[in-house]
Simulated scan of single mutants.
Amino acid sequence: MARWQPDAPGRLADAALDLFEEHGYEDTTVIEIAERAGLTKSTFFRYFPDKREVLFGRGTVTGLLVEGIASAPPGAGPLDTVADALDALGRTFFTDDRREFSGRRQAVLNAHTELREREALKRIDLTASMIEALERRGVPSLTARVAAQLGALVWEIAYDQWLDPDNSEGFGPLARQALAAVRAAEAEC
């Protein structure tokens, strides 16, 4: 593969996932990932600080959620604002063409404690970023925290359903269904 080809981070992520599946996470080196992608070790480190991070998208999901919150309609309530951001995430990131890669990625994460721990930390960061984005919209801190925590729950439920090989529905509609279930549960309490 020629080094000048575009999307070095994507190529590195694809190569890493293939190698993690073939040889295991622990037995794969950064050099092997870079070589498989047709790149150099220094190019790898230009994009990722270590091999754990290659599967975590360099904050892409967080950035898209924050943008989605910022661009939600001005009159939207906090939870509807988060729902609009999740819809946008489904249209731009969790698309049908990424479903297979995401499922493979999740299987690798599930098989390694270190990667599951990193994923948990990323989800905490994601929730904190949603709180900050809601507060920038003028949502009071406690309300922003509750909406972001519920949004993270909705995201997790929708993501798990979206990864299910028997599911053909998009991420956005699944997030809306999960949000409806959260609201129904709240109404029953």
Results as ranks from 00 to 15, higher is better:
1 M>I: 02
2 A>N: 14
4 W>E: 12
5 Q>V: 03
9 P>R: 13
11 R>L: 08
17 L>N: 05
18 D>L: 12
22 E>D: 13
26 E>S: 10
26 E>I: 02
29 T>R: 12
30 V>W: 01
30 V>D: 02
30 V>K: 00
31 I>L: 14
39 L>T: 00
40 T>Y: 06
44 F>V: 04
47 Y>E: 10
48 F>T: 01
62 T>W: 03
64 L>E: 08
65 L>Q: 09
72 A>G: 09
73 P>W: 10
75 G>T: 11
76 A>T: 14
79 L>N: 04
80 D>P: 00
84 D>G: 01
85 A>K: 09
88 A>L: 11
88 A>W: 09
90 G>N: 14
94 F>W: 02
97 D>W: 14
97 D>F: 13
97 D>C: 10
99 R>Y: 06
102 S>P: 02
104 R>H: 03
105 R>S: 07
105 R>Y: 03
110 N>E: 15
111 A>R: 13
111 A>T: 09
113 T>R: 15
115 L>S: 13
115 L>T: 13
121 L>A: 14
125 D>M: 05
126 L>F: 07
135 E>A: 14
135 E>F: 11
135 E>P: 00
136 R>I: 01
136 R>V: 14
136 R>E: 15
138 G>N: 05
144 A>I: 02
145 R>Q: 07
147 A>C: 09
148 A>V: 07
151 G>E: 05
156 E>A: 13
156 E>P: 02
157 I>A: 11
161 Q>P: 00
171 F>E: 01
171 F>G: 03
172 G>M: 09
174 L>T: 08
178 A>P: 00
186 E>H: 12
186 E>T: 01
189 C>M: 14
